[in-house]
Design a protein around this nucleic acid. Structure first.
Lengths: 123, 123
DNA sequence: TATTGTTATACTCTATAACTATA
DNA sequence: TATAGTTATAGAGTATAACAATA
C-alpha cells in the first residue's frame, strides 16, 4: 500500500506541475534549493549519486532556473536559484499546498497522525 | 516523506528478496498471482501497460515460475503459477512478513492506524 | 469492427567507472 | 593523496505504436 500510494502521490504531483513544463526530478531538486547548496549536499538530500546532480544542474541551468556559483573552495559549486528559479519554487509550493493527495483526502488531525507514523518509519 | 518511505520500503524489499535472485517487478507480479489471472487483469492490478506484462510473463516463464494457459476465449492468456512459482510466492510472503520496514519499526496498533490512514488516501 | 496479447522501439531515471581540477 | 564535480556509458523499468490472432 505504501508503494502504491507513493506512486499515486508522485503521479498527482507530476500532473499538477505539468503546466510548469518541469520534469519531476527537476522540481524535486528546486524544492530542495531553498538556500544555495553545494552539489554534493544536494546529492545527499536527494539520496542519489553526485554524477546525477550534474545532469540535473545542467538542465536547470539551461532553463535559467539556477546558477553554478563558486565560493571559497574552488572545487565546490553552489547551486543557487535565479529569480526565475525562486518564482518557480514558489509556484510549486502553491500547487502542492492546494492539490496534494494528502491535503485532499485527509483532515488536519489525520495528517498529523500520519506524519508521526511516517517519521517513526524513517527513524 | 511518503515518497521517501516508499523508496526505502522498496529498497528493503529488494535487499531481502535478493537471495531469490528475482527482480522486484517479477516478485510483485508473482505476489499478485495468488489465482491464475488474464494478462490484462494483471496489467490493471500493477497499473501498467499490457505490453509490459508480456515481458514480465516471458521472464517468469523462462524461470519456470508461471505458465501461459488458454481458456475459453482463445485471445486470453491466463498466467498460472507453476509449483515452483507457488513455492517462490510463499518464500516472498515469509520474507516480507519477517523483515518488512513496517513490521520492524511499528507496533501492532500503530500498523493498524497507518493502514486505515493509507486506505483513506487510496479511496 | 473491437479486443487480447505481442513486437519493436524509445524514453526517463539513475548508477558506475574513469577522469579533471583543486586542495 | 583526497575531494568535488564531470563525462561517457550502461542498465532497469516502463510506455507508445503498429501488428496478429481471435471474437
Amino acid at each position: 500500500m505504501l508503494v502504491d500510494i507513493a506512486a499515486k502521490a508522485k503521479e498527482v504531483f507530476a500532473a499538477n506541475i505539468a503546466p510548469l513544463g518541469l520534469p519531476v526530478p527537476l522540481a524535486r531538486a528546486i524544492v530542495m534549493l531553498g538556500q544555495p547548496a553545494p552539489m554534493g549536499a544536494l546529492a545527499e538530500q536527494l539520496d542519489c549519486d553526485p554524477s546525477y546532480i550534474t545532469g540535473l544542474a545542467d538542465q536547470m541551468e539551461q532553463r535559467g532556473l539556477v546558477e553554478r556559483v563558486t565560493g571559497g573552495d574552488r572545487r565546490v559549486k553552489l547551486l543557487a536559484l535565479t529569480p526565475a528559479g525562486q518564482q518557480t519554487r514558489d509556484q510549486i509550493a502553491t500547487i502542492v499546498a492546494s492539490t496534494a493527495l494528502v491535503q485532499a483526502k485527509l483532515g488536519d488531525s489525520e495528517r498529523k497522525a500520519l506524519a508521526s507514523l511516517l517519521e517513526k518509519l524513517l527513524s
